[in-house]
Amino acid sequence: MQETTTVQLTVLGDFRSGEYTDWVRHRANILDLTGWINTRDNNFVEIEICGNPILVEAFELACSIGPYSVTVRDIQVRTVSNGPYSCSAFEVR
């Protein structure tokens, strides 16, 4: 059994193109991670992501650049827990 971590990402930038959500979901699926994404507004996205810490790190790295139409200015990472997680998929909220 590999260890698991859950982190919350606060992503600030310009998300007006609307392409960020699908791009992030695609990345979560490739890395077999669960959690959710919530686009608060055109400049503020919240993501919770759960899985193997190395893959969570890879996810953060990909989210820090995103699709070309999106500008990510800052990404803040906060660890929520290091235990099991309730989500079984990656949801768009």
Binding site: A58, L61, Y68
Partner: peptide
């Protein structure tokens, strides 16, 4: 510049 078709990890 869009790494959608790649899989970067911490090493990248």
């Amino acid at each position: 510049l869009d790494p959608k078709m790649e899989i970067p990890t911490r090493a990248d």
